[in-house]
Write a protein that binds this DNA or RNA. Structure first.
Ligand code: MN
Ligand code: MN
Ligand code: MN
Ligand code: MN
Lengths: 226, 226
DNA sequence: ATCCGGATTTAGGGTATCCGAATTTTGCTG
DNA sequence: CAGCAAAATTCGGATACCCTAAATCCGGAT
């Protein structure tokens, strides 16, 4: 109550809310500089927008400390996340996109599609639970599944695990990972590790490979389904 | 040459160019107030934008007279028109939209899709020549077919003609026309006319109907294909 | 307790887009 | 050709975002 006008939620606003959601979900504090880093904006721009969004009741801002989404902010963030992941899924399923090229397209379309279109795409896809990168798709009601698992960098040797989610947006890295067979659903076994920041040795359906530790940290694995 | 920065063509700019293209194509002068009317903006806003677009070389502006697209402006306008009509066609063909509901969605998506996505949609559709309303879809090179034909309001009595294009965006009117069977490709015969602004009497596959003269003017007809 | 460096915010500006009110121009019209 | 009304433009102002430079704050280290 109180809040009269839902007014225009602009593209900028949606991207800010999504970035803050992402940071919070990753367990990181949503600081001014973290948000600025994600959105590639200057810190003063973020301070200004944060102030506006707080006044609109979408954020709780503790000056000099950081921000958190309010319930209303979280709802809007999840709406945008849902659209983003549905668009990615649709483009891969029906329009010949691959997982390394969908992100930029979705980054724009997430702000342009109507609820109607989002739900039609979801229906065409059979209401998928995850997107091409293994990220869970929030429901239209704003529920979202937890992502659980262990980073490939921490998976014990000799255990066959399944790739659950690849937390990476860079197209080149995604193509590289796909070339190693490291895509959601694939089975992987860590066969060894080199010390001092060395690579993870692993076996996938695509063969045996050595993977740098930072990329390995972006790959979340879990027990193979059934 | 000369023009260095193509810079960001914003949504507003694309909509202005499209409106001016529409007026010019319809043979109407692209005056300040006509543009303002189409875009639902105030005349001073249009004057300001027209000035900016002229400086960018997209329009030729004769103060107090009107504007015309330059070659560059026309190219951008046709690009947006292509996207609009491809989006409409795609949504109808693949996502269960009907011709009365696609316009608003396309009005936003036309600004958000990449060239890549536009061409993938075109390919999925088999590179269609017209959209669901019978409007010709410009090619990626910026060629566009002429629309020829006679308004249903001027079709002589007793001649079977084919509906070519329905120049109408209002959802209710489009649903009404569809209910009378007046959609692109349908065969129609004018069976009579009432004078003094009275209706056109006509026969379609959906039966016999009386149609108001203003709607009849929005329906372009031609000789049935072979 | 004080200092310092990094993070954050404030100050001051800039662009794009829109508006209403006031003014100017134009194309009649008598 | 003076007078007028409609159309177009100019003027002044607002909002949303974004930036750089200059304070200011904060938490840890002396
Ligand atoms: Mn985005
Ligand atoms: Mn994704
Ligand atoms: Mn538009
Ligand atoms: Mn159309």
């Amino acid at each position: 109550m109180g809040a009269i006008a839902a007014q225009a939620v602009t593209r900028s606003v949606e991207d800010y809310l999504k970035a803050i959601y992402r940071l919070s979900t990753a367990g990181q504090p949503a600081t001014t500089s973290a948000i600025a880093g994600l959105l590639e904006l200057s810190p003063p721009s973020v301070t200004g927008m944060v102030k506006r969004l707080s006044e609109q009741g979408l954020l709780a801002h503790e000056p000099y400390r950081g921000v958190a989404l309010t319930a209303a902010g979280r709802r809007l963030a999840l709406r945008t996340v849902r659209r983003h992941r549905l668009v990615e899924s649709y483009l891969v399923a029906y329009l010949g996109y691959s997982w390394d090229t969908v992100h930029d397209e979705a980054e724009r379309l997430e702000h342009a599609i109507s609820d109607e279109l989002a739900e039609r795409m979801a229906a065409a896809l059979g209401n998928p639970g995850v997107d091409p990168h293994g990220d869970p798709i929030p429901t239209a009601d704003g529920d979202i599944a937890e992502v659980t698992g262990v980073p490939l960098s921490d998976v014990p040797e000799g255990v066959a695990v399944e790739v659950r989610r690849v937390d990476e947006h860079d197209a080149e890295r995604l193509r590289y990972l796909a070339s190693l067979g490291l895509v959601p659903g694939a089975l992987v076994t860590v066969t060894g590790r080199e010390p001092f920041g060395g690579p993870v040795m692993l076996r996938t359906p695509a063969g045996t490979h050595a993977l740098g530790p930072s990329l390995a940290g972006d790959i979340l694995c879990g027990r193979p389904a059934e």
